[in-house]
Amino acid sequence: MREILVLSGKGGTGKTSITAAFAHVSGHKIICDLDVDTPDLHLLLQPTHEREVQFYAGNEARINQAGCIGCGLCEEMCRYNAIHHDGLDVFTVDPIRCEGCKVCVTFCPEETISFPEKHCGRWYVSTTRFGTMVHAQLFPGEENSGRLVALLKQEAKKLAKEKQIDCILSDGVPGVGCPVISSLSGADFVVIVTEPTPSGRHDLERVAGLCRHFRTRAGVIINKFDLNDEQSSHIEKYCRDNGYPLLAKLPHDALVTEAMVKGRAVTECGESKIGLDIRVAWEKIEQLTR
């Protein structure tokens, strides 16, 4: 089984458009959108939900006012600044700041803080024109994206086994934090999509560093390479010096936005240079992961 993950570090470099095109040009696979916070892949793949599952994770503290004696121990012990009291010594928990650590619940001398489980989002198994897709939507502002990412990956693996499919193609999240680290666990190959800008370069180096940290192999796609030739050659040199295969240099092409508006993968919109380059890139990934 091969798990191929598309990352970028910087947001907006083209992860999702490229993942959708890979989903179009590749053979059997399970498609996975691991961006559970701001998922976009479904806008191109238009999945039909076959299964919808509610996602519960973590808990949140709630002070039952009737039993509260206003001692203030909870506010004092909370490391997340999530408990405050007003002028009348009414103590309340700010759900946005509450980390769900249970410290206030455990130490409240009156045992008057409850700790209900949180309903954080939904996840789906769907069918698309390119195959089965696993995806989710965390409710806006919710936490536990790392846990939901891990759950989606687990589900994708299970489905792949059932259907005897040997490839999982995942669209990732920007950044290098919790959901990215969670998405890297067990991945065989990371496709880093960058762009020839100071931010693109800087963030490429950080996400490549993260792949190194977790000993995961990675290759690079320079998107919109013709925006700045000098920056592009710096990135190429960085890839050569650090042993990251350059998978493609994709041109800046309005076709990508046009495809997005139509809800299509760019490779579905007739013959194009960018479409051809993406096919070649996928071939290289196939060879590198076989």
Binding site: T38, D40, P140, G141, S145, G175, T257, V261
Partner: peptide, 29 residues
């Protein structure tokens, strides 16, 4: 970027929020 805990942590103590959006389908969504 995003709308979960790190993004909320950045905006929650602010006086004004300026959201930058582009008009592509991904941007709008």
């Amino acid at each position: 970027p995003g709308v979960s805990c790190p993004a909320l942590c950045a905006v929650m103590d602010s006086d004004v929020i300026v959201l930058v959006a582009d008009a592509t389908p991904f941007g709008l969504h």
